[in-house]
């Protein structure tokens, strides 16, 4: 497999491009219908919508874990399967391997890619330092809190030096305080590492706080209902959540989301 320099971008190409993508499951259900969107380098795009709108399916299409039924998906001009080296996926729940210690979990990707052990050790130590997990390096996942587990999961994704990070409702199971803290940390990493991010969530507040752009999806079948740019100033901190501009955005998005849902109910869809 050709390994790309992570800093090299094919000029003019979007990081992620979907063209008329539909996804039909084997049981006949249409999960996504005619989705076209472009994500440019450095964007933080949130996907928001009720359950069943195909948000997670969209992430799987971009990561190449499942093929599109029709249309095309390109990641930096390549097929998703060929672009896996550029992508890290952070799953709902931390999905750590319980039989591995924190440091072994973080080093998993490098191990699978057969990076030499001494090099691996160095990068794992540096990464644990970066996300503040050095103290618990030798612990097992069951000894950690939900927030800590998620931080391990982020460290594991980060260590492969991805250009694109896909997150599938990563903080859904956490309490609000841990969630807010991890959101701030995620933004810090996003700015430092120059990622492009596709973020699936149920939470309007979270999506507004994090995103440069928000895509609201309608359900049955999943389709793009609205695209909302979020023009809150950078850098965003805990203070940002207290500003009136932030609140206005949350209200605006809530209204849009509700209109999408009631339109669907009028069509006789499932409310």
């Amino acid at each position: 497999m050709v390994r790309l320099d992570p800093n090299e971008s094919k000029s003019g190409l979007p990081e992620i491009a979907l063209e008329g993508v539909s996804k039909q499951f084997r049981n006949g259900a249409l999960a996504l219908k005619d989705i076209s969107m472009r994500v440019e380098k450095g964007e933080f795009v949130s996907l928001l919508g009720q359950s069943g709108c195909g948000k997670s399916t969209l992430l799987r299409l971009v990561s190449g874990l499942t093929p599109a039924s029709s249309g095309s998906v390109a990641v930096n001009g390549m097929t998703p399967a060929n672009a896996r080296d550029l992508i890290s996926f952070i799953f709902q729940d931390a999905t750590l391997l319980p039989w591995r210690t924190v440091e072994q979990n973080v080093g998993l990707g490098l191990e699978l890619e057969r990076v030499a052990q001494n090099l691996r050790r160095e990068r794992v130590d540096a990464m644990l330092e970066l996300v503040g997990l050095s103290q618990v390096a030798r612990r097992y996942p069951r000894q950690l809190s939900g927030g800590m587990k998620m931080r391990v999961s982020i460290a594991r994704a980060l260590i492969s030096r991805p250009r694109i990070v896909l997150l599938d409702e990563p903080f859904a199971a956490l309490d609000e305080m841990s969630r807010d803290r991890l959101n701030e940390e995620l933004l810090r990493l996003y700015l430092e590492q120059h990622w492009t991010v596709l973020f699936v969530t149920h939470s309007i507040a979270e999506a507004v706080f994090l995103s440069t752009r928000m895509v609201i999806l309608g359900a049955h079948p999943g389709r793009i209902a609205h695209v909302v740019p979020i023009d809150l100033p950078w850098p965003r901190t805990a203070e940002t959540r207290l500003t009136s501009a932030y609140e206005e955005q949350v209200v605006r998005v809530s209204r849009l989301l509700r209109s999408v849902q009631s339109a669907q109910a009028d069509e006789g869809g499932v409310a």
């Binding site: 990561s63 896996r84 996926f89 990707g109 699978l112």
Partner: peptide, 20 residues
């Protein structure tokens, strides 16, 4: 999701079998 995690790192079937 764990299988997907391994696949994202281009894990071989043997790696998935013995490491997961």
């Amino acid at each position: 999701n764990l299988v997907h995690l391994f696949l994202m790192h281009n894990a071989t079937p043997l790696q998935i079998l013995f490491k997961l």
